[in-house]
Simulated assay, not measured.
Amino acid sequence: MKKSHIAYMACIAALIGVGLGAAPPAVADHRTHVVFPGESIQKAVDAAAAGDHVLVASGTYRESVRVSTPRLTLRGMGPRTVIAPAATKAADGCADGNGICVLGTKDRKVEGVTVAELTVTGFTGSGVFAADTDRLTVRHVTAEKNGVWGIAQERSVRGAFRKNTARANGDAGLFLANTVKAEQGATDSGGTVVAHNHLEGNRIGLTVRRLRNLTVADNHLTGNCVGAFVVGDENMPRAGALTVRDNLIDRNNKSCPKTARLDALQGTGIVLTGAEDTLVTRNQIRENVGASPLSGGIVVWKSFVGTTSERNRITDNVLEGNAPADIVNTDTAGKGNTFTGNTCRASKPAGLC
């Protein structure tokens, strides 16, 4: 056996013994399944039981991976563990051209899955797509150059999305929704957290659609057409009751053309549309400049079916160099929206700074 391979195996052993942590007696029977280049991640996932780890060595793996086993951890060895599309569609383990799918059912959510420490790139759908999950964790994942979303979740609760990078994806870098393909009211996300992510060069950095009870904190959103989109509509319950705080949202000046659902986009920090009871606070929002109807630092907008935004609190943000204005409120019919304590120079209408 070559010395380099012996060293590689020693590194894997160290990761299993130290990086993953020694298992306490109650879970001593949980196994770690190690996957090397040329082997199938999906086969290891299929062989794993609830609570097991699948550790994927550095290298490129051309396949999609479907996870439905509760409490499974799928972990790479960092950005050089790369999951990319298979050469043939028949090898696709997920529907709709996604890279990693974490899927429960409408009747039974898959619980406690973790996806971590890897790169997912080049898929026609999304890098990571999850549905019907409870306590999904996605951390230290790089999702780049995927056709739709970088990392996406629907019909799920209590998720944690931390320290990921989503770059140059076709739609949102991070996309969280009640449901993707149906019209219905906002759902309670159970305290889902989106924190310390870097979202760059996507159409939209972060989309939160028809959800309630969620925190977006300490993220960096830059170089997108829109930094963050909080979306509601006429369905009940209304979207909102969430917090967007302590984020750096700068230079989201990429230009995106008009679509069937949205006007052309450019130069937007945060948009609230058809949302209620949302707190936007302590964000730094700088140099978002564009000529789109939605351009500006913080923009409060009627939903695209005319539903007003109500009782949102825009407070203690620092806004600088955004155009056409730092704060834009086109939803003047919306009741109870307040703008207090913000550091800014210009607003539409005047008087909001």
Rank of each mutant, 00 (worst) to 15 (best):
I249R: 01
S303W: 03
D250G: 07
A260M: 05
N253A: 08
R261C: 05
I270G: 01
S292N: 08
L272P: 01
A260F: 05
T259V: 07
L294F: 10
S292Q: 06
G296Y: 02
D263L: 04
A291P: 05
L279C: 08
Q266S: 14
L272S: 01
W301E: 15
L262F: 14
G297E: 03
L262A: 11
K258D: 07
E276F: 02
I285V: 15
T243L: 09
D277F: 07
T281H: 06
W301T: 09
A275K: 02
I285F: 05
A264M: 11
W301P: 01
L242H: 07
V299F: 05
A260D: 14
K302Y: 06
S255T: 14
N288R: 10
T278F: 04
L248I: 08
E287F: 09
N283Q: 11
T259N: 08
G297F: 00
Q266E: 15
V289L: 04
R282L: 08
N283S: 10
L265T: 08
G297D: 02
D277H: 14
S295R: 03
E287G: 07
G274D: 02
V300W: 00
S255C: 02
F304V: 12
I285E: 01
S295Q: 07
R251Y: 06
F304M: 11
K258H: 11
E276K: 13
I270S: 03
C256A: 14
G290C: 10
K258P: 05
T273Q: 13
E287W: 09
D263P: 15
